[in-house]
Design a protein around this nucleic acid. Structure first.
Lengths: 218, 218
DNA sequence: TCTAATTTTTAGTTTTGTCTAAAAAAATAT
DNA sequence: ATATTTTTTTAGACAAAACTAAAAATTAGA
């Protein structure tokens, strides 16, 4: 059984490995707001546990075991975020901190039941894919609305980082995650999109379209 | 912000104070599976924090502050248990261990939203009352079915300790928490109860009636 | 290439919450 | 009422996970 702290390190390692590929001691420290010396200690421990490939002074990478363990934590995090938004009506921007705690709850059965309760969602409220039980993570066919052409369709999966206020706006317009969107017309003059959602025509500014994530089928 | 460990001690203190009234260092140690010396350490800390009235060698009692803090943890525990049973369809006997973890999640807003999501339940799946936000705990008007006379009514709130299998049986009979029960007839010969639940007549053996908890209105 | 700057690791300290063993206080029994 | 037993507290140790400061390795600059 891994400690909360270990789980946080594993997640950090996973995310850093995705975004950049050099995972240095100091980058981990920065990500987790800790001192590099603390990171070194944990890396040694992780090498023992075979979570990482580690050579002194040479940086790290997750082993298969490490990656799978990280994915199971990310799965929990994203399922809980989905729960908080879909069932408890939290705002999409409020759920991260709470999910950081919930992700550490230990119970396989709990997470499977939660998954079912939520109808086995594929994406969390931020549009990030939810890894499945075996660690498979569906590669996203995710696009911004602004990338779609007239008559193309997609399903709303989230919004881009740092655009929390957009969520409130969408809420007010009764637009929800999972809603289907079809592009009716794009105004050349200012890039405004006219789309159809739930049989209603809506108008989105270019700025909105640059921040709205959709799952498409190409 | 109190640590997980502190919260466990507070809960233990509260429960011990309810059941017995002499709360000795060793009884706490036994309850928490720890050594008395560890308990003494925590008691000193709690005295500092004004959670308890503590005099060396003289045992302890919770202060108002301690009691309120304990109740807020118990509130969380019981709301989560209710969630697990009602929404995730866990068995009534499986939820305690998971709720022991969930009760430590820190978020006022989360617990208020969970409470609403569950329709502000008054009792948890074991029939224990859920303290409300301000720490008020509704004194139970709880009775065993066997205590009711013909034509009396009650609402099912749970089953007695150690009768997990009864829950499965009730589940199979489509009897749920919150269902209304009316006693139609009591057979003198063997104490069998004939009751009405959801407009259906059901027959319960005396043994069942000795283990089924109801909220009544006397 | 060889020195200077940066990064990483090591060594030693701190805090929290546990433990064991010993000392002190209280309770019990004769 | 005092000696024995039990309970509680004290004192000191340990593990986990963080820290600081110093040493070692690597990288970069001239």
């Amino acid at each position: 059984m891994n400690s909360q702290s270990e789980e946080d390190y594993l997640k950090a390692l996973y995310h850093l490995e995705m975004d950049f590929d050099a995972v240095s001691t100091s980058s981990i420290a920065e990500y987790l707001n800790m001192k590099p010396s603390s990171v070194t200690d944990m890396l040694k421990k992780f090498a023992e546990k075979k979570f990482i490939n580690y050579q002194k002074y040479k940086g790290t990478s997750l082993t298969k075991k490490g990656k799978l363990t990280a994915l199971s934590i990310i799965r929990k995090h994203r399922l809980w975020e989905t729960f908080l938004v879909e069932k408890l009506s939290f705002g999409w921007d409020q759920v991260h901190i709470i999910a950081e705690q919930l992700e550490h709850i230990k119970s396989e059965e709990l997470i499977e039941k939660l998954d079912n309760f939520l109808d086995n969602p594929k994406y969390d409220p931020h549009g990030d894919p939810i890894p499945c039980k075996d660690g498979n993570i569906e590669e996203m066919n995710q696009k911004l609305l602004v990338e779609l052409k007239t008559s193309q369709k997609g399903i709303i999966t989230g919004v881009k980082k740092g655009t929390a206020s957009l969520l409130n706006y969408l809420d007010k317009e009764k637009v929800k995650l999972g809603d289907s969107v079809k592009v009716i017309e794009i105004l050349e003059f200012d890039g405004t999109y006219i789309v159809e959602i739930n049989k209603r025509k809506l108008t989105f500014s270019e700025k909105i379209c640059q921040n709205l994530l959709l799952e498409t089928n190409d």
